[in-house]
């Protein structure tokens, strides 16, 4: 018999801010705990770098050639595979709340509210547009100023159109060093490295409980 999930977070608002919404359930006779955690992550970057396409590929395994600008924010959810907790019989399953945030012309309170409480972010640039990486440094700085502890992964997207050239490789490397973040090249179109980026971000977000 599986007992009803108990919510700890509701009575501990502070805990909510650390690990979002925490549920604990007992499953089966083995008394193996499955801990489900909601984590908010953001997709950052200037327009047309492939933020929405990356989410679509990761969450729904699909790709649309047509470019359609995002307005505001769209939240998608995806359950990551359960992970073992070191030194514990419990397993953790992260439910990613993925915030696909439109490119912003300015940073104001609205953007702050979009970024608030995120445990991590994927910062994307477009390998066919080297200047998209230049703008990424400022976007990442703003994000970190609101979430100083948040994990970051730097991504050069559209590798199917163009592999990183000498210029973009240097820019990606500099961003990765500046923000202490791992870097990947991905293709939302082919799916190359997309799952790896999200898995790495979950790992970078650190201890799940």
């Amino acid at each position: 018999m599986i007992p009803k999930a108990k919510s700890i977070g509701k009575s501990h608002p502070v805990a909510l801010s650390i690990c979002s919404f925490l549920q604990i359930s007992q499953s089966g006779a083995m008394f193996c705990f499955m801990i489900a955690i909601k984590k908010k992550i953001c997709l950052l970057g200037t327009f047309a770098v492939g933020k929405t396409s990356t989410v679509e590929r990761f969450v729904y395994s699909r790709f649309n050639e047509r470019y359609l600008t995002t307005i505001g924010v769209r939240v998608s959810q995806k359950l990551m595979p359960p992970m073992a907790v070191p030194g514990n019989s419990a397993k953790v399953q992260v439910n990613l709340l993925i915030w696909d945030i439109a490119a912003m012309d300015r940073f104001d309170a609205v953007v702050e509210n979009y970024y608030r409480g995120a445990a991590g972010a994927i910062a994307l640039g477009d390998l066919t547009r080297p200047d998209s990486f230049g703008q990424l440094a400022e976007i990442c700085s703003r994000f970190r100023s609101i979430n100083p502890e948040a994990a970051l992964v730097i991504v050069g997207n559209k590798s199917d159109l163009q592999p990183p050239n000498a210029d973009t490789a240097v820019e990606i490397d500099q961003l990765a060093q500046q923000f202490g973040a791992p870097a990947f090249t991905t293709s939302a179109k082919s799916g190359e490295n997309v799952d790896a980026v999200f898995s790495r971000l979950v790992r970078e977000m650190g201890a799940p409980v």
């Binding site: 801010s17 979002s20 909601k38 908010k40 924010v73 939240v75 509210n113 409480g117």
Partner: peptide, 18 residues
């Protein structure tokens, strides 16, 4: 029901809500 379940957009903003 839970406000955060109905509005996942508010997850992460619990401090601000309080």
């Amino acid at each position: 029901g839970s406000l955060l379940a109905a509005f996942p957009e508010l997850v992460g903003s619990e401090d601000a809500l309080m």
